[in-house]
Nucleic acid binder design. Structure first.
Lengths: 134, 134
DNA sequence: CATACTGTAATATTTTTTATTACAGTACAA
DNA sequence: TTGTACTGTAATAAAAAATATTACAGTATG
């Protein structure tokens, strides 16, 4: 479903929160232990939501677009999770009365569960998270 | 990770909540549009948590082990989700100070997010969910 | 203009999920 | 007491999803 890993995005942003100047995708990739392309894809999402700025060319890389204290973990979640976590592909039989109706009910439920996560993540800033490290 | 789909389990239980006598895995599978073996695996989890009873042999099948009004959607979630939803495989580089510490912090965060979902699901009984259908 | 980056597409590989097959065990019913 | 209709579960196959790799055009810097 072309999802980007939340952990990758949060790890990336945590690294950026600890650096004044731009950081290259290669450096971050080696810290996260994933491929640089994965980091760049993740950054593309974060950039589209205004969380990071990137600079191309020599000496380029990424940095936070605003203070870590004003980035909520829910912002990251939204950037990265397109579909509700709990829902997956589910194709009930249209001839079954329960099957027919259940999908919309499930979807509503999944959205509620997602909202519960979001509310939790809204209460934590990137600066909070980052401050847990020495 | 050998996870069982929450939607499959809930669909199964919704069918059982609407029937007095036992229902076969083949019938439920055709409503859900999955393989009967997937339904039986799901039922195995639900049975181990005391949510359903199954009967082997001819005329066998499954039924609720207790009233739908006393089954919480969080019970189903617990039966089915072994690991937190938000966490996935993540193997940061042990030589990076951030990478080294981040895993345990992430895990704590994932558990908190999971708790948020659980609290939401605790507020809904299977009977509530089922009552939404005619 | 050489160098060191980003952006992104195309493809391959790996991992995870789901399906299928197979078959032993159990209960009912003629 | 035997055939029938189920469950339980393991082993394997297939499909789907995530991740890695390769490739290369574009861009900023010195």
């Amino acid at each position: 479903m072309d999802n980007v890993e939340f952990a990758t995005a949060l790890h990336t942003l945590t690294l950026l929160a600890g650096s004044e100047d731009v950081v290259s995708s290669a450096f971050m990739a080696s810290s996260i232990n994933v491929n640089p392309v994965v980091v760049r894809k993740s950054l593309a999402r974060l950039r589209s939501l205004g969380l990071v700025e990137t600079r191309e060319g020599k000496g380029g890389g990424a940095r936070l677009a605003k203070p870590a204290s004003s980035i909520l973990l829910s912002d990251i979640y939204k950037a990265v999770n397109k579909a509700p976590l709990l829902g997956r592909t589910n194709h009930p039989n249209p001839d079954c009365p329960v099957g027919r109706q259940i999908n919309e009910r499930l979807y509503t439920l999944y959205e509620e569960a997602d909202k519960a996560i979001l509310e939790k993540l809204e209460s934590i800033t990137l600066a909070d998270f980052r401050s847990k490290f020495k």
